[in-house]
Design a protein around this nucleic acid. Structure first.
Length: 409
DNA sequence: TCTGGGGTCCTAGGACCC
DNA sequence: TCTGGGGTCCTAGGACCC
């Protein structure tokens, strides 16, 4: 709980939301300056979606999460480039470091967004607005990238503010202006209102945030359930008790993959589960964590999705154990023969690795599997991820030429 | 339009315990 | 024998976010 007030008191606009503009596209364009000013879309794959698009492409109606096929139709002149995730991560780390130079109270929301509580930084760096200007200038000078910053008394108002001043903007919402700022906005501007909730609100005749504020809580509760109703009602009145929390400990780790064509063959799906289990386990080990609940996700050709999960007696970070559980879940799910478009593996219920004494079955020699993982991780560090893989994941060799049958006269 | 991959949080129902 | 109520843990599904 960081409720300490800055020199302006607890009611100042001390929360910043920093949001990079068209982040993936902007970073990619740093390496391709000749493309500046043109419609560029980041995305790829036979069944891909738009991950990011320049504002020139957005002018044609292209936006994030849109199927690439549709984006291409809307904007045939756009250049579609593959994502460069490592570069995005790298730039993200440096931008977050700029923010942490201002205050340790930085809560990253994703690679390209973060909240800051600057109430303790006034003495060093000035008012929140001055800090926002400084951050924008430094990110531009250091990285050649623009960002938009919302400044407000609460996290969610700061977030809406940054969204409404994009791109390359700065918007301050003083405490006294919060309700006048919020109430005319459509319900969908609220954090937590997506398609389904917007439709439910619409059925109640609620179109703006002001409408929600005026609606009795009980009515909202019937339509949305307890938690969502409370949440939205509070937000609509400008109330948001959350503090900027720099703790970023994950609750789960997952890996999933959409196959380039639908697959019904069990062996091929099992190989995919093996690969994804390895990815999940490797990430767990890299973070020093272990999982007690292993889950799988299967999406069929018709887009219906099932999940299955199993909680283990002891946490594990061993690739083979995660795979064995995932495979058992897959076999027990009774979906043999159906055409699958996506498979996923998830680890939840995370603990610190080694926090509990390993109590292991004697017959399965997990110590040996664990050693294999460590060796694989080390090789991955030296030779790049994927340098060492289970034999069943290696590209399949053509069958060896058949030896001529010995003549046995 | 034909829908990625990484996450978080909530709900509802069942098992189990007291 | 018909029958409470609360708490915790687990699973499946879904909404939502970037």
């Amino acid at each position: 709980m960081t409720s300490e007030a800055g020199p302006m008191g607890p009611m100042g606009s001390d929360i910043l939301h920093v949001d990079m503009d068209a982040f993936f596209a902007a970073v990619t364009l740093l390496g391709r300056p000749e493309l500046r000013g043109q419609p560029v879309i980041i995305g790829g794959g036979p069944r891909g979606v738009v991950l990011s698009a320049t504002y020139e492409a957005r002018a044609y109606g292209v936006h994030s999460a849109m199927p690439l096929a549709r984006a291409r139709r809307l904007c045939p002149s756009a250049l579609v480039l593959p994502p460069e995730r490592d570069r995005y991560q790298e730039v993200s780390r440096r931008v977050m470091a700029v923010l942490r130079d201002v205050t340790p109270l930085v809560a990253p929301l994703s690679v390209d967004e973060a909240f800051l509580d600057v109430s303790g930084a006034r003495r060093l760096f000035g008012t929140p607005v001055e800090i926002a200007r400084m951050i924008r200038a430094r990110v531009l000078a250091d990285e050649g990238l623009t960002c938009s910053v919302g400044v407000a008394p609460t996290m969610f108002v700061a977030k809406i503010a940054s969204t409404r001043c994009k791109p390359d903007g700065l918007l301050v919402v003083p405490p006294g202006d919060v309700l006048a700022f919020l109430h005319p906005l459509p319900t969908s501007a609220l954090w937590g209102v997506g398609r389904a909730t917007e439709a439910a609100l619409d059925r109640l005749g609620l179109r703006t945030i002001g409408d929600i504020a005026d609606c009795p809580l009980l009515t909202l509760r019937h339509a949305l359930g307890d938690a969502a109703a409370q949440h939205l009602h509070a937000l609509a009145h400008g109330r948001d008790e959350r503090a900027v929390d720099p703790d970023t400990t994950e609750v789960s780790v997952s890996a999933e993959h959409t196959l380039s064509v639908d697959v019904a063959e069990a062996d091929q799906l099992a190989r995919e589960l093996l690969r994804l289990s390895g990815q999940v386990a490797r990430r767990l080990r890299a973070r020093g964590r272990a999982t007690r609940t292993v889950g799988i996700k299967i999406r069929f050709a018709d887009f219906t999705t099932v999940t299955r999960a199993r909680t283990l007696r002891e946490p594990t970070d061993v690739s083979q154990e995660i795979y064995r559980t995932a495979l058992a879940l897959f076999r027990e799910a009774g979906i043999a023969g159906r055409a699958v478009r996506l498979v996923g593996v998830r680890a939840a219920n995370l603990t610190e690795a080694g926090a509990t004494g390993h109590q292991l079955a004697i017959d399965e020699r997990p110590a040996a599997w664990s050693q294999l993982d460590r060796a694989t991780d080390a090789a991955g560090h030296r030779f790049g991820a994927g340098a060492v893989a289970p034999a069943s994941l290696l590209p399949r060799q053509p069958p060896p030429p058949r030896a001529p049958k010995p003549h046995n006269p």
